[in-house]
């Protein structure tokens, strides 16, 4: 076999690929170095961090169990309501927007673009920001929290739903269309069965996320268990803070178990 082959130089990627990766790595390193150099960290605070942390845990335990009956239980139920209603609200808004955003359902480019923009915009405003907005409008309370959860979730639910719709196989849809079925039954008999598993997956996933998210709403007046946390924290009752955190953890775990059980049944 010829000697020329032995002189092949082999490299893993093409020049462009390597350039792109190199740029990505370089920018990552540059960003980290820049951030590390410019971020303000006060060393004196660090010095007594271990002592403060130990103190924190010592003050947390034992929990103030009586706080559960007084405040936490009602707040917890409210949190679950906020998360669930918020998710339902998000779905109600997201379904029509997703239909408009899916290119295979809505043939108009302009409408697709507008719908996609709405999805991106709702998602890029954090739940807490939405909560601030709604607290300013409706006053503090669970209503503001629910709307915040709902509006922030529109983007997430809508985007994933639109993607699922776009991945629907064409053949059954075309077959339905060939029979002269009206658009409504094409949606319900053609698209819905294809996206149903994804739909429930998305809804459950978002509900799961929203349970966690709604725990924080109370910090800005959005109701729920965050209120109990905020009160305890402002009063420096760390034994109550500890209790609230433990309750949140328990709820999150239970939620995760519920969603994974339902998901296994449904999908």
């Amino acid at each position: 076999m010829s000697g020329a082959i032995g002189q092949h130089r082999w490299q893993r990627f093409s020049v462009q690929q390597r350039l792109a990766r190199f740029t990505a790595y370089l920018s990552a390193v540059a960003a980290v170095v820049w951030a590390a150099r410019s971020v303000e960290i006060i060393p004196e605070f660090l010095a007594d961090a271990p002592a403060q942390t130990a103190d924190l845990f010592r003050r947390m335990w034992p929990f103030d169990w009586s706080y559960y009956g007084r405040e936490v239980h009602a707040a917890l139920i409210e949190t679950i309501h906020i998360a669930t209603l918020g998710t339902l609200l998000a779905i109600a808004f997201a379904v029509p927007i997703a239909l408009l955003a899916a290119r295979n359902i809505t043939p108009s480019k302009t409408l697709n673009l507008i719908a996609t923009f709405v999805l991106v915009a709702t998602r890029s405003i954090n739940t807490l920001l939405w909560a601030l907005l709604f607290v300013a409008i409706f006053g503090p309370g669970a209503l503001a929290g629910m709307l915040a959860i709902g509006f922030h979730s529109i983007g997430f639910v809508g985007k994933l739903l639109a993607e699922a719709l776009e991945e629907t196989p064409r053949a059954p849809i075309d077959a339905l269309r060939a029979t002269g079925a009206p658009p409504a039954s094409i949606l319900s008999k053609g698209y819905w069965p294809a996206v149903e598993p994804s739909f429930w997956g998305i809804a459950l996933l978002r509900w799961d996320i929203n349970i966690r998210e709604s725990a924080v709403l109370g910090l800005v007046g959005g109701g729920g268990i965050g209120m109990a946390l905020d009160t305890a924290q402002n009063n420096l009752y760390w034994d109550q803070v500890g209790l609230v955190l433990a309750v949140i953890f328990a709820v999150v775990i239970v939620t995760e178990i519920i969603t994974s059980t339902i998901r296994e049944r449904l999908i």
Binding site: T168, P172, V195, E196
Partner: peptide
Amino acid sequence: ERRAIGLPPPAGRT
């Protein structure tokens, strides 16, 4: 993103 968050691919159920 769908994959990143662990959603199943949409089923082609008809």
